[in-house]
Design a protein around this nucleic acid. Structure first.
Lengths: 222, 222
DNA sequence: TTAAGAATACCCTGATCAGGGTATTCTTTT
DNA sequence: AAAAGAATACCCTGATCAGGGTATTCTTAA
C-alpha cells in the first residue's frame, strides 16, 4: 500500500539524506518537506483533507518551535496524522513529553533506514513504533511505576527509622482510628498508643495527624 | 554474532514451527526447548553459567506455571537472561504483569518470523522489543498515567461537588493549618472556616482532618 | 421571583489530640 | 556487663477539633 508522508527537519544534510534514502521505497511518497514547524503547519493547512500525509517524520531538536510543540499543534489540528519523532538523544524527559504530546513513535537518528520504513508502515496500519532502546526505557518506566511504590515504602520506613510497631500505629492514623480504637485493635493501652504517636511525630517532624497522614500517603507507607 | 536461545512453549505444533523457522537463521542457536516452565527451570539449572541461553522465548499461556510466573522465577535465579514473551492475546493486564515480572520484550504469535529474529537480536544487544500494537498500548498507558492525574482532580471536585472555596479550605487542611491560621490566610473568620470544614466533611462523608487529608491526596486534590 | 447554593459569621459542648513528663521490661548490640 | 532502642503504661494540661445549632447576604438557576 502507498503511504503519504511528510518530513520536518531543520538540518539540510539530514533532510536530504532522508529524502534520498526514503525515495528508494516505492510505497512511501514524500509529499512535502519542511525545515521548521511553522512551515510544516502552513503546508498542512494548504492541503485538502484527502491529500494530508498519514505520517509526519518530525525532528525533535529544531530552532523555533521544537518537535514536541509542533506535535502538540499538529495533533490538535490534524488528529488523524501520526507523528514519528526522531532524535539523536535518548533524553528520557523528551521521550515522555513526546508521548504526552501525541507522538505515535520514537526513532533514533542512527536507526537504519529499514527501521524508518518499518516504523512508518506500522504507524500507517494503526500501531506504534519504538526504537528498541526507547522501548526499554518505556518498559522500565512502567515497571518501576509499580515497583517504586513497594520499594519506596520500605525505603521511607528505613530513612525515618520507624519501627514496625510505629508503622502499625501510623496505618491506624491513616485509617482515622482514635487512640482508643487503635489500642483495642493492637491489644495495647491507649496510653501506649499515645506514646507511639509522640515518637512517630518526633521522627517525622510533624505535629498532627493530618500531616502524619500526608506523610504516610505521599511516602507510600499507607 | 551468535545468540543462544531457548524456547518454552507447550503446544507441539507451535513449538516445532518455531524451531524449524528459527533454525533457518545461522546466528541463532536453539540450545534447548521445554514444554513447560518446570522443565525449563531444571534444564537451566543443569547448565553451566557460560552455557546459559541469552534469550528465552516464553509462551504466556501454559498449563501449570504461566509464562509470567516462569519469568519471575527465571529472572530471580538467572537475572542476566532476557525473556521474550509471546502470546496470541493482546491482554493489557498480562502485558503489564509480564513487564513487572521482568520480561524484556513482548511479541504476538502472528508476528512474522523476521520480527522474532529482530527482537531476539535487540534483546541480545541490550534493547527491548515490542510488537507495534503492544508499543501502542504501552504508550497510551504512559500518556494517560500523566493526564489522568490532571483530569482526576477536577473530576473529584465535581463528583463531590466541592466549591472552590471548599477546595481552598481542604488544601489548608492538607497543609495542616488550624482554623485560626486558615482564617488569617483566607481573610475570613475562623468560625467561617469551621462552617466550611463541616460542609466539606458532609460532602466527603468523613469525620476528621486525617481522613480529609487522605481523601484529598488520593483523589489528587492536594 | 422564589428557591437553592455558596460564603460569611457566631455560640456551645463534649471529644480528642498534642506535648510535657516518668517508668518498667525486654532485646540487641557493643 | 552496660548502653541503646523498642514496646509497654500512666499522669496532666491546654489546645484544637467535631458536631449540633442559627442567621445574613449574595448570586444563580428554575
Amino acid at each position: 500500500m502507498n503511504i503519504q508522508i511528510a518530513i520536518v527537519e531543520d538540518q539540510d544534510k539530514i533532510r536530504k539524506n532522508l529524502i534520498t534514502r526514503l525515495d528508494f521505497f516505492d510505497d512511501i511518497n514524500i509529499i512535502f518537506v519542511a525545515e521548521n514547524a511553522d512551515i510544516a503547519l502552513s503546508k498542512l493547512r494548504s492541503l485538502s483533507e484527502k491529500n494530508l500525509p498519514q505520517v509526519i517524520l518530525m525532528d525533535i531538536e529544531m530552532p523555533g518551535k521544537t518537535g514536541i510543540e509542533a506535535t502538540l499543534e499538529i495533533k490538535s489540528e490534524f488528529p488523524e496524522i501520526d507523528i514519528l519523532i526522531q532524535t539523536v538523544f535518548e533524553n528520557e524527559e523528551k521521550i515522555f513529553q513526546s508521548i504526552q504530546a501525541g507522538a505515535s513513535g520514537y526513532l533514533l537518528k542512527d536507526d537504519p533506514i529499514q527501521k524508518y520504513v518499518d516504523a512508518i508502515q506500522e504507524l500507517a496500519t494503526g500501531g506504534a513504533a519504538l526504537s528498541s532502546s526507547i522501548a526499554l526505557k518505556l518498559m522500565s518506566f512502567v515497571k518501576s511505576e509499580q515497583q517504586q511504590k513497594e520499594t519506596k515504602a520500605k525505603a521511607a520506613q528505613v530513612e525515618f527509622s520507624l519501627s514496625d510497631r510505629e508503622i502499625d500505629i501510623l496505618k491506624g492514623i491513616v485509617d482515622d482510628l482514635t487512640e482508643q480504637q487503635l489500642g483495642e485493635q493492637l491489644f495495647i493501652s491507649p496510653h501506649t498508643v499515645r506514646t507511639h504517636i509522640k515518637n512517630i511525630y518526633k521522627k517525622l517532624h510533624v505535629h498532627s495527624r493530618a500531616s502524619a497522614v500526608r506523610f504516610a500517603i505521599t511516602k507510600g507507607l499507607a
